[in-house]
Amino acid sequence: MKKIKTALLSYGMSGKVFHAPFLTLHPGFELTGAWERSKDLIRQDYPNVKRYESIEELLADDVDLVVVNTPVDTHYEYAKQAIAAGKHTLVEKAFTTTAAEAKELGELAKAKGVTLTVYQNRRWDSDFLTVKQVLESGVLGDIVEAEIRFDRYNPILSPKAWKESANAGAGVLKDLGPHIIDQALALFGKPDSVFADIRTLREGSVVDDNIDILLYYPNKRVRLHAGFFNKELLPSYVLQGREGSFFKDRGDIQEDTLKTGAKPNLDNWGTEPEDKSGLLHYSQNGESIRKTIPTLKGNYYGIFDGVYNAITQGIPEPVTAQDGLLVMQIIDAAIESDKEKKAINL
């Protein structure tokens, strides 16, 4: 099996939790190291890899794939450098800060003949996979209304300064927003128009921390919400169809498990507790049926397997640059909608 030599552009929480464990689990990848400005944390966990002192040193090395897992407002700059150097590139969400930047990166990757993937790991969450399965089963009939939420209760500002400073990549719209926007697009495709209400509610905050977005389709509407004042959580996924309803809490355990230092596997990984099962209520042959739906297993291994296959087989990336561009177009439209107080056509 061909080894894809892979380097990270940082080794904070994302590198330690979301990337390195799966890159070392997958037999097709070889973790070469990470760019760390002042610390040398990666070699505490992986003693045989390198600590790069600059992005130039990293790009000059024998590296096939670069993971851009730095703050959002640096994604465009660093991804552009990696692609220009002829490296396959995996960029965390938000892909960029604007749709124009996303479009440019996609065109550059195509010109350079390298793969460009957006790290939308929430497509491989157990809860989302279960929602997708129920939707595709057709048991709900035509969907007329849906809601996807990513709620928390955390009124205190983050100690990470880059998350709370007024920069182009800060705020919940570009933090949690890309997750729920991408999930909606994966389920329902591109909407006709977007309406958004974007607010700053936490005391002392200078960035948006509460978003409400409506996606309009010819035959349905989809509401997306994320915020930090949700002490009692509502269902994270609500599907309302002509034949029934499906409710599901956000219950994926992968992130919390990875934060304990546990290593992923391909056997019993990503299994939600039974009390997180979804609720399905539908009509069939004149009978009303109400039952719980067991949750599928989640596994972020899937996105890395998809990246590997895209590089080695030339098939489309698991989350393409075009997917990332559409998410950024929705975000741009949401910002314009909030400013103009009207729906924005795409």
Rank of each mutant, 00 (worst) to 15 (best):
A343H: 02
P218H: 03
D61R: 05
L296G: 04
V327F: 00
V67F: 08
V118M: 07
T96A: 09
N210Y: 07
T295P: 13
E77P: 15
N299W: 00
A111T: 11
E272V: 14
L129A: 06
E203L: 08
S137D: 14
E107W: 01
T271G: 04
E104L: 01
E36V: 04
A146R: 01
G15F: 10
F95R: 00
D182P: 03
E255A: 11
L266P: 01
P218D: 10
D208S: 14
I330D: 05
A60H: 13
A161L: 14
S205G: 10
I83W: 03
D62E: 12
S283K: 11
D249V: 10
N154A: 13
M328P: 14
A146H: 02
A334G: 12
G169M: 12
E57S: 13
D209V: 05
H225C: 11
A111V: 09
E101H: 03
A109G: 10
K248I: 05
F195R: 13
I148C: 07
L239T: 06
D45C: 10
R51M: 07
E164S: 15
Y76K: 09
L41Y: 12
D142E: 14
L9I: 10
Y119E: 11
N345V: 15
K220C: 11
P21N: 02
I148D: 05
G241I: 02
P21I: 04
K163D: 12
I156M: 12
D338M: 09
I198S: 04
D332I: 06
H281F: 11
Y11I: 11
E147P: 02
D125E: 05
A94S: 13
K174S: 14
R122W: 00
S165Q: 14
V307N: 04
A262G: 03
G33Q: 08
R223Y: 09
H88V: 08
